[in-house]
Write a protein that binds this DNA or RNA. Structure first.
Ligand SMILES: [Mn+2]
Ligand SMILES: [Mn+2]
Ligand SMILES: [Zn+2]
Ligand SMILES: [Zn+2]
Lengths: 150, 150
DNA sequence: CCGAAATAGCAACATAGTTGCAAAAATCTC
DNA sequence: GAGATTTTTGCAACTATGTTGCTATTTCGG
């Protein structure tokens, strides 16, 4: 279990307060988990890392609250396990704006937001209108590729 | 329940035999459901339409068999409900090749394969490699847009 | 039509997600 | 900082989704 320093404790508290959310142990811990690592987390991942401390239902509700407030966003998947990642843009209460793609590594099984890669414009046939575009790329991530070469 | 004509009965039987699959009632019925309508189907959709006749487990296993043989492919989603659609390209035993995007209508809630829209090339940062690209567009479909104008 | 092989159905189980309600805690007010 | 108020949590109970082992049934080649 990674030691929660005073500095990071402060950071999550500030993040929560900025969204006018009550600062509770479970919210701090779950937000901390997202800050501690670069990938996305599924409900199951979080339950494994903090499930002994908090109830499953609390985790579901906390994730939903974070999504509603624009702290995290969902990432669709082909394996029936929606993942969540921190919003880095100017998402807020009730609105998300994401223009980046998502990358799923077949080796380490992690999902990453590639903020540098902007989603291209997709030209649809006549009659269709676009609200939102989600792009999922599957392949081998930077870290795993580097590890292979060694 | 749509009447299964001799002609369509023949068609599904042929499709199954082409994949060297035994021709069974459940396989015929489920394949029929895909042919009867333009959208994608989730396990739940199929269970509603044929669940009284066939066991849930049979539906799961049939869908898996169809995916393995390249008869249908999966479509990821943001709502934890993977959908399935017929493969129109030259997919076969153990290999799928799809270059089309998927469209989710926010109004009729249907998911469609837009075979005409080719997935663009996505340029990833150094170190990442691409196996597969999945593009999900959310918006209003042709039929729903047309219905609105009336 | 017969026998071998494949498939279907059933039961039991595992995992995922939801809801109502009372207890606990966080926040507000003074 | 105590007490009132609001919010959040934990628990129980429930629904939905997906998996596995085993046996009965069906399919299919000969
Ligand atoms: Mn993202
Ligand atoms: Mn498709
Ligand atoms: Zn990786
Ligand atoms: Zn529609």
């Amino acid at each position: 279990m990674p030691r929660v320093t005073v500095a990071t404790e402060r950071k999550v508290t500030d993040l929560l307060k900025r969204q006018t959310l009550s600062v509770t142990e479970s919210r701090k811990r779950i937000l901390q988990l997202f800050l501690d690592q670069p990938g996305a987390l599924s409900h199951g991942d979080i339950e494994k890392k903090a499930g002994e401390v908090f109830d499953r239902v609390t985790i579901y509700r906390t994730l939903q609250t974070f999504v509603d407030r624009g702290l995290i966003h969902t990432i669709p998947s082909a394996d029936n396990a929606v993942r969540y990642a921190l919003c880095k843009d100017e998402c807020g209460d009730g609105h998300h704006r994401h223009e980046h793609i998502h990358f799923v590594c077949t080796q380490c099984e992690q999902t990453f937001c590639l903020d540098e890669v902007v989603t291209p414009v997709i030209r649809l046939p006549k009659g269709y209108s676009t609200d939102q575009i989600e792009i999922l790329v599957q392949g081998k991530c930077k870290q795993c590729t580097a590890a292979m070469r060694r």
